[in-house]
């Protein structure tokens, strides 16, 4: 005897699952259908010979190469700032902080993780307004500022993954160092960090993916549509997610729209690859220790 309510419940579960699968199917299908044909060297470099584009001899106007380089710069710069700080903070939270003090600091990091990304952009923007008023009248939004704000965006992810990785190591591993007479830091440095290296790397990759895909932060901190290759840290720049946003709103020719679909597909492939790599490392870490 199965009651009607239970039948309905099972049907609803099936329905929501099938609906979601259908939506994801349509989403991926349409992106592949419109974008797959555009992938190629002309999407990246337009009509400029590849060698000349790569060495920066000729500017690329009808390709997304400058945007890709811009995103690469953004990711490298923001990782340089966020990864060491995030690792150190994660180690502190996992191994040194205790009690109420730890709760308070973790709460601040949690709040940061839950803050809308556009707020980091707004913070960068107001920082420039402040600098102009206070010391640097010529300060303007630029690559360095955008990287700083992206670093703030990914910092809480870095802190959290580091902390969780260290805390999930079994007690037997944590006691190896002390039993051999190692100090607290020596134990972290020679036992705990190497043991959790895969999970730490997975956190780094996730942060890179987050920095590469975010659009709201750079929108307020100096991204433009036609900057060419980034010339210096204090210049405006192009970036792949912004190119997609810009082409969606401002495309004038069917070719530009195709370029939009191609860029969207390319960005999706990049973030999904990073995500898969991170998951595989995380999986290896869990199989090793749990």
């Amino acid at each position: 005897m199965v009651r009607v309510s239970e039948r309905l419940f099972v049907a609803a579960a099936w329905l929501s699952t099938l609906m979601t699968l259908a939506v994801v199917g349509i989403f991926v299908g349409s992106l592949l259908y419109r974008g797959l044909g555009t992938l190629g060297t002309s999407l990246l470099f337009g009509n400029v010979p590849i060698i000349n584009a790569l060495i920066g001899k000729l500017p690329v106007w009808h390709g997304i190469w400058p945007a890709i380089v811009g995103t690469l710069f953004l990711v490298l710069l923001s990782s340089t700032m966020a990864i060491p700080l995030g690792l150190a903070s994660g180690i502190y939270f996992a191994e040194y902080a205790e009690g109420r003090w730890k709760d308070l600091l973790s709460f601040a990091v949690d709040l940061l993780a839950g803050t809308p990304s556009i707020i980091m952009g707004l913070f960068g923007f107001s920082l420039i307004l402040f600098l102009r008023k206070a010391i640097l009248p010529g300060a303007n939004v630029c690559l360095l500022l955008a990287a700083l704000c992206l670093a703030l965006l990914v910092l809480p992810y870095m802190v959290r993954t580091t902390q969780v990785a260290l805390e999930s190591l079994p007690e037997s591993t944590r006691l190896v160092g002390p039993s051999l007479g190692l100090t607290r830091w020596e134990n972290i440095r020679h036992v705990l960090l190497p043991a959790s290296s895969r999970a730490l790397l997975s956190g780094v990759i996730l942060s890179v993916g987050r920095a590469a895909e975010d659009t709201a932060v750079i929108l307020l901190t100096g991204v433009v549509a036609n900057a060419g290759l980034p010339a210096s840290l204090t210049d405006k720049f192009e970036a792949l997610p912004f190119t997609i946003y810009y082409l969606a709103a401002e495309y004038r020719t069917p070719e530009e729209l195709d370029r939009g679909f191609g860029s969207a597909l390319l960005l999706l492939v990049i973030t999904v690859s990073l995500f898969v790599a991170a998951r595989m490392l995380q999986g290896a870490f869990q199989r090793e220790w749990q």
Partner: peptide, 18 residues
Amino acid sequence: DFMTSVPTVVYGFVSAFL
């Protein structure tokens, strides 16, 4: 899991044209 890794701007783009 795949859905968590899709960039927001890509959702926006497909939505705007589909």
